[in-house]
Simulated scan of single mutants.
Amino acid sequence: ATQMKNESRMPLLIEFFGPEVLKAVVEAPSPRFLGTHLHPDIMPSSFSKKKTKMVVMFRNPKDTLVSYYHFCNNNLVLPSVEWDSFFSPSLFAWGSYSDHALAWNQRMGDPNVLVVTFEDLKQDLSAGIQQISSFIGFSLPDAQVQQVAAASTFNAMKESSANSHGNMGNVIFRKGEVGDWRNHFSPEQRETDEAFNKQLAGMELGGKMDYQRHCQ
């Protein structure tokens, strides 16, 4: 990862980089760690040319929507909204989410792309860390994997979020649970499974997301 001091609080998402931050990133020694929410079709072309390793995180769509709802309501720069007003079948049922997922599904055969899921990491964080470290070219002893895992649990990151994310810590780190969507979706809102079956079921990424287990 890029060796940057915590106190600089440099944003991880490349789409938020201003000129000064971009300059610092360009001048930083390799290897560097960057994050983005960009659609794969508009990623910088240099990522493909330089065979940049890309770890892509997916979370089941229902929990993703709930997480985004709370992120919006807890973010002081965004207007608050009630759940029933926020929930939109067109938003949930596969506008940008499905487009994003389908685009990454086409890249799952790329040796420089590794897709991991939030649910898998919650189930076995150590195995996920081992998989990711091997993918990016690091061979970690078991003791170091366990050390990284201990510091990477949701509770550990939430406790340290004031240092890592400043005032945004409480906005970004809320529950970190699998299945919280069941506390929000009404019986009518739960009838969105057909959209998944039409768009993503049968796809390699769709199978990896294990929709039936986590969303039904």
Rank of each mutant, 00 (worst) to 15 (best):
M168S: 08
T36P: 00
H184F: 15
K198E: 13
R9P: 00
H165I: 00
A151T: 14
L12W: 14
D193F: 15
A195L: 06
L38Q: 01
V81H: 05
V115R: 04
H165A: 07
F17A: 06
F135T: 06
G137K: 07
S80V: 15
N183W: 00
S134H: 08
Q199R: 11
G176P: 07
P31K: 06
R213E: 12
F86V: 08
N170G: 15
N75W: 07
F71Y: 14
V115D: 01
K158L: 04
Q146F: 02
S96V: 13
E15W: 12
R9D: 07
F58H: 09
T36C: 07
L114G: 07
V116Y: 10
M203N: 03
T64G: 04
L12G: 10
A156D: 01
E177N: 04
V148E: 01
W83V: 09
I129H: 02
K122H: 15
S139P: 01
S96A: 11
D142P: 02
F17G: 04
R182H: 08
Q3F: 10
V113D: 09
M54S: 13
N163W: 00
L65E: 12
S88F: 04
F86L: 09
M157C: 06
W83H: 06
S48H: 12
G35C: 08
F71M: 09
K49R: 14
R32N: 07
S161M: 09
G18I: 10
H70G: 03
M10K: 10
K49I: 09
M43S: 05
F135Q: 10
E188V: 11
N167S: 13
R213M: 10
Y97C: 06
V171M: 01
N163Q: 13
S134D: 04
T36A: 08
V26N: 12
S8G: 00
V171G: 01
K62H: 15
F92C: 09
S134R: 09
F58I: 02
G202L: 05
S67R: 12
Q3E: 08
Q144S: 08
N183M: 03
E177M: 12
S152W: 03
A24G: 02
S8C: 04
M157V: 03
E82V: 14
S186D: 05
I14L: 15
I42T: 05
Q146W: 01
N6M: 11
L205Y: 10
N74M: 07
W104C: 05
T153L: 12
P19S: 08
L114C: 06
H37L: 02
N183S: 06
I14H: 10
P31C: 09
G35F: 04
S164I: 12
F58W: 06
F86S: 09
R9M: 15
Q131E: 02
V21Y: 14
F154S: 03
F196R: 04
A93W: 02
P141I: 01
F86Y: 15
R190K: 14
Q189S: 08
L91F: 12
P89W: 07
P89F: 10
D84G: 03
K23E: 13
L22A: 14
F196P: 09
G166H: 06
K53P: 00
S8P: 00
L76N: 05
M108N: 02
L140M: 12
E177V: 05
N75D: 05
S30Q: 14
V21Q: 15
A195G: 13
S80P: 14
V77P: 00
S88H: 08
Q123N: 14
K158G: 01
L102V: 06
M57V: 15
F86G: 09
